[in-house]
Computed example of a mutant assay.
Amino acid sequence: MSKYKLVMLRHGEGAWNTENRFCSWVDQKLSADGLKEAESCGKHLKALGFEFDLVFTSILSRSIQTAWLVLQELGQEWVPIQSSWRLNERHYGALIGLNRAELALNHGEEQVKLWRRSYDVCPPPIDQTHPYYQVIHTDRRYTCCDIHKDKLPKSESLKQVIERLLPYWNEVIVPEMKRGKRILISAHGNSTRALLKHLEGISDTDIVNISLPTGVPVLLELDENLKPVKPHEFLGDQEVIRAAIKKVEDQGKVKPNDK
């Protein structure tokens, strides 16, 4: 029997989602379509009768902005928000800013799929010659983390995302759930995949096939031991969601006119 209902959400679309570029830790606001996605998500959750007591986000603006808009549509703007770098998107290292389809053309679709979706393959690390190194590593938000800025990642596999996310999940989020708080997590594609992998026991091989569209809430029902009572569920028009998932999967493929 379900005891807890956890709603997770990949933020609404950002500008670099539209441009098919690895955004990662580069901070961006939502695009016009991303704003609509977040508002639509809030409307849908309201129609389903969801109420929240606490929201968790990353420290990236697109995650926080999505949470604001969802709460606004729910009429629950007063609900507290807690933000942590541990819910940030995966650090894509040297791939940050690059176009996925162009990478597929130059390195092959399978290599790009490994970089994007595999469990333990880590992209090349970012270094000081990278055009976005200073943008990320001089950002004041990274002086407010629970570890020293010098120890923050320069590149991550999904395995490493899980390793830095789980302490926050176990020590901060889980105790709130067990106190009866109804939780919304507004995060990113890979931090949400990481949590799904952990909670659902998805294998290292099968996680490659899990893709999350922007702005679509994911419901996971858990028992008293925080074990899922059924597979996660995308909330919304299922045909539209399937099309959105395919769009995400196709981002790492060579465009027909580039062949």
Rank of each mutant, 00 (worst) to 15 (best):
K5F: 00
G108K: 00
D204Y: 00
K43W: 01
R179H: 08
V70R: 06
N88D: 12
Y4H: 15
L71A: 10
K181C: 11
Y92M: 05
K230Q: 15
G34N: 07
L220W: 03
K255H: 07
K3M: 15
C144Q: 15
W25K: 09
C145P: 00
A94I: 02
A194P: 03
K178L: 14
L196Q: 12
L222A: 05
A67S: 13
A94P: 01
A194S: 13
K197Q: 15
A38R: 04
Y132V: 06
D223F: 06
G49C: 08
E233L: 06
E249H: 00
N225V: 00
V254R: 07
S155G: 13
N209W: 03
E110F: 01
R242T: 05
H148G: 05
L114A: 14
L152C: 09
S118R: 10
V26S: 12
K227D: 08
R179G: 02
T205K: 14
R86E: 11
N99W: 07
L114E: 12
R117N: 14
G49W: 04
D237Q: 03
R179Y: 04
A104K: 02
I147N: 04
V26N: 09
I59M: 09
V174R: 09
L103F: 10
K197N: 07
Y133A: 03
H44K: 12
D139G: 01
E77I: 12
R21W: 13
L219G: 01
R182A: 06
G108R: 00
K154A: 11
K36I: 08
V161D: 02
Q251C: 12
L48I: 01
K149G: 01
Y168H: 12
I136F: 06
S61M: 13
R179C: 07
F50L: 05
G14R: 01
V7K: 00
K154V: 13
V172D: 12
A15R: 15
I64K: 09
Q251F: 11
E171D: 15
P228R: 02
I147P: 02
W115C: 04
P213H: 05
S31C: 07
V161T: 15
S186L: 09
L6V: 11
N190E: 14
I64S: 06
K151F: 07
N209T: 07
H44T: 13
S157R: 05
I59L: 05
N225K: 14
Y132H: 13
L226K: 04
I64G: 02
P80K: 11
L103Q: 08
